[in-house]
């Protein structure tokens, strides 16, 4: 495994399943891009983090959000809607990462202006693969909006 290079990228993972969260984290650790992963476990915390409210006052704005749709307190779609309606937050790329393959979820997510929609893979190898691609695309090739 090569060493990650560049300044670390801030990634926010909104995921209520700790097992899935850990897998994502593991995959990112093995990835090519240096990154700091922050995890929140429900929709309300997601927004608080993004708005740098309360405990998250010192956190910096993430460069990429990985968003699960099924979360307690506020689900992914609502969060997505709010993010994209907020002038301060709407530019942040949001990649939906969910177990659902339902067409409705895909359509709705894009309607709510998700930047991409990914289905969670069935095993770790899959995770490695998907994270690798996200890194390639969203963190390398793509020009991210400036701060």
């Amino acid at each position: 495994m090569t060493e990650p290079y560049g300044d670390p990228v801030e990634i926010l993972l909104a995921e209520d399943n700790p097992g899935d969260a850990k897998l994502t984290k593991k995959a990112l650790e093995r990835g090519q891009i240096a990154n700091n992963l922050h995890v929140v476990t429900d929709g309300v915390e997601t927004l608080k983090f993004l708005r740098q409210e309360g405990d998250y006052a010192d956190e910096s704005r993430p460069d990429l959000v990985l968003l699960d749709l099924n979360m307690p307190r506020k689900d992914g779609k609502e969060v997505l809607e709010e993010i994209k309606a907020d002038d301060e937050l709407k530019r942040i790329p949001v990649v939906v990462l969910t177990s659902s393959e339902a067409e409705e979820d895909i359509i709705q997510s894009y309607d709510l202006h998700a930047n991409a929609y990914l289905t969670k893979p069935v095993d770790f190898d899959g995770f490695l693969d998907i994270i690798g691609r996200i890194e390639d695309f969203w963190l390398t090739v793509v020009k991210r909006p400036p701060e």
């Binding site: 097992g19 593991k26 659902s100 969670k120 095993d123 770790f124």
Partner: peptide, 17 residues
């Protein structure tokens, strides 16, 4: 089958890890 995917993912992934 869909609902089974998640527990499967857990088992499968962590066994691999």
């Amino acid at each position: 089958s869909h609902d089974l995917q998640e527990p499967l993912r857990m088992v499968s992934s962590y066994m691999s890890l």
